[in-house]
């Protein structure tokens, strides 16, 4: 009725997309923790493949959403805003995929002195993605209200930044060879980028909410 059936399908697609991102990040979390516990092994490769599959599936769903949106599913201003939001969220899955694949390709071994902080920065990143996705679900759901998630995302991003600087400092104080130093520094920066992306999306979600509030 009233053309809402098509939009209900669209809503389902959007929530499916968010679930795929959540699944991809969760698998990425498992992969990083497995790496820190067991190093690079076959199980890690399986997890890398699963992260890639989730990213690829999310891309497919996002493509379908784009097509649905241009079949006059939503008001034009909503179409553009929603598409932009999903594109930004998709960057999280891309980053997770690139990170896990990069570690495998470069054969990076994480030094013992970095592992505790790396677990923590990873935990913070994954937690921030979860908070963000909960916020997006609340925004696009019936409530159309946002929990106070932007502040939490901002706090986590600050903590990640502090940890990132500390870890990079430790990398360059240690006895690692120069190539490993550079590679590990980039790895830490890439993990830290996840919360930066989350922070940018959180700002966008806040603006989206204000713009569409009646």
């Amino acid at each position: 009725m009233l053309g809402t059936k098509r939009n209900q399908e669209l809503q389902k697609q959007v929530f499916d997309f968010l679930e795929l991102i959540r699944h991809g990040i969760s698998t990425y979390d498992q992969a990083v923790n497995h790496l820190l516990e067991n190093g690079l092994d076959e199980r890690y490769d399986v997890l890398v493949q699963q992260v890639h599959q989730a990213e690829s599936n999310a891309d497919d769903v996002r493509h379908d959403i784009s097509l649905s949106l241009y079949k006059r599913s939503l008001l034009p201003e909503s179409r553009g805003d929603l598409l932009s939001l999903l594109e930004q969220i998709d960057r999280l899955a891309n980053r997770a995929d690139a990170l896990t694949y990069g570690i495998r390709t470069l054969g990076l071994a994480i030094p013992e002195f970095l592992r505790k902080d790396m677990r923590e920065i990873n935990r913070l990143s994954v937690e921030t993605v979860g908070i963000l996705l909960d916020g997006v679900v609340a925004l696009l759901g019936r409530a159309r209200e946002l929990p106070a998630f932007a502040r939490q995302v901002d706090n986590n991003e600050s903590l990640c930044d502090q940890l990132e600087r500390k870890m990079i400092g430790e990398i360059f104080q240690g006895d690692l060879d120069p190539v490993n130093r550079i590679l590990l520094k980039e790895l830490i920066e890439d993990i830290g980028d996840i919360t930066d992306i989350c922070e940018n999306i959180a700002h966008y979600v806040t603006i989206f909410h204000i713009k569409h509030k009646i």
């Binding site: 939503l74 008001l75 159309r144």
Partner: peptide, 21 residues
Amino acid sequence: LRAIIRFWRPSIFVYDPAMRW
């Protein structure tokens, strides 16, 4: 109308086609 919409609280996927009609 604003009071009605705030009471109804539709999601963007319901609100937009409703506005269209």
